[in-house]
Design a protein around this nucleic acid. Structure first.
Lengths: 234, 234
DNA sequence: ATGATATCAGAACAAATGTTCGTTGTCAAG
DNA sequence: CTTGACAACGAACATTTGTTCTGATATCAT
């Protein structure tokens, strides 16, 4: 019972490969006889035979009584959609940012290591590069989900997603995530270093800033690049 | 000497547009007769006539005596980038949402008409479909930029971008943009209809809700689907 | 008005092309 | 051994489809 394997026979693969190459080069699909010539199949009916199988297997779709009516859906090497999508992420402006954890006021926030290329693909945030700051490398970005209402003075709500950039130091005017040693909490504030002391300014202009005289107490965890709020509607 | 213009006649454009749409959908090019049917050209010779012209102009290439042997090289709009971008939006999960204007507390907000398919491509927001609510059609979405600090009680800051959905009525718990007749201002609030009166709840839990006894005074302009805050860093 | 060029229609034709049918060979299962 | 499914071949057939030809209409410069 070696027959009728689930996989593709050499002829199936040959046909798919030729189909891809021909369509790529010419811009339109080959005819049955052209397929036969290139795959050493002498009879058009045999080519038709295999094409019907490939259609049943979902590799192609065909138009009835249509010349060259073959639409290549997947390639022999797997799913072409996956390939294209990956290429799209490389070429176009789609970036996947790993969602590495939660940010809670009362706990230190997670910071991914230098090699967090391996992450759960399910917990990624897809963002168009056009929305990101021009200079930022996507590799330095990660996402956190905000838990709790403690960051409302930073105009950040429970459930919001903040896109962070890994940095060690902050520049004036940047929004940073800082760990305040004395209060033992994580907070999001605009950072200003003025006359040797640090001013942490809430995003909400009606709130008062925090002044910290010793800059060493301020541990900059990362820079906030973007805040995304998805409003769920049931 | 108005003849023989360099540009494309309406029929040229029609053919190219159909060529693109058909190939996109079916995966293989149309036949001459299919082109004729869709472009109101009754004679195959006329279609052939125009196809030859398009080939000379470099828009397509053709195979001799080849059924459906048309290879679309460029589209009517100029270059192939448009094609690729459209394909990317189809294949991947990238959606372009038009940025139609600003939302200011003191002024009525702009709402695009039912046919705002034509918009400035430069002012579009690219968003991964995975970030949008599953059921929403991208055609019903538009984006507004927030001007001023007047929506801080909705946790929305100056410069934020809100993604709106065109709706006429709101359901309880949804965040909506409403025009308050008595105050003459636009605001973003969570909407609740309770016992015949409307409760508009700020997103900031420390703020008090607004109660409106006559629901007719509340004009729902749209539903807020997402809020995006890009923090600029210099 | 007139001629040249462009555009269009319809038909006929030939080539390309998909479909179907009968037949044969192979091989595992009964 | 027989049977049946699978794979393959070749031929005939029907349809699709590109090509060509004749003629008509339209537009515009002269």
């Amino acid at each position: 019972m070696a027959r009728k394997r689930a996989g593709l026979s050499p002829r199936h693969q040959k046909i798919l490969t030729f189909l891809q190459a021909y369509t790529q080069e010419k811009g339109y699909p080959p005819s049955i006889r052209e397929i036969g010539n290139q795959t050493q199949i002498s009879s058009t009916s045999v080519v038709n035979y295999y094409l019907n199988q490939l259609e049943e297997m979902g590799y192609i779709s065909r138009g009835s009584n249509v010349s060259r009516g073959i639409n290549l859906l997947r390639t022999a090497s797997g799913n072409i959609i996956q390939q294209v999508k990956h290429a799209v992420e490389q070429i176009s402006d789609l970036v996947t940012i790993p969602l590495v954890g939660n940010i809670v006021a009362g706990e230190p926030m997670p910071i991914p290591g230098s090699d967090f290329s391996y992450y759960d693909p399910d917990s990624g945030i897809d963002i168009a590069r056009s929305l990101l700051p021009a200079g930022d490398k996507p590799e330095d970005l990660y996402a956190l989900k905000v838990h709790g209402d403690s960051m409302i003075d930073a105009m950040v709500n429970d459930g919001d997603i903040v896109i962070m950039k890994k940095v060690n130091t902050a520049c004036n005017g940047e929004m940073v995530a800082v760990w305040l040693n004395d209060r033992e909490e994580t907070t999001l504030k605009y950072f200003y270093l003025e006359n040797g002391r640090v001013r942490l300014q809430p995003a909400n202009p009606s709130m008062q800033p925090i002044y910290i005289n010793d800059p060493r107490v301020v541990e900059v965890q990362g820079k906030v690049v973007m805040v995304i709020r998805q409003i769920s509607h049931n």
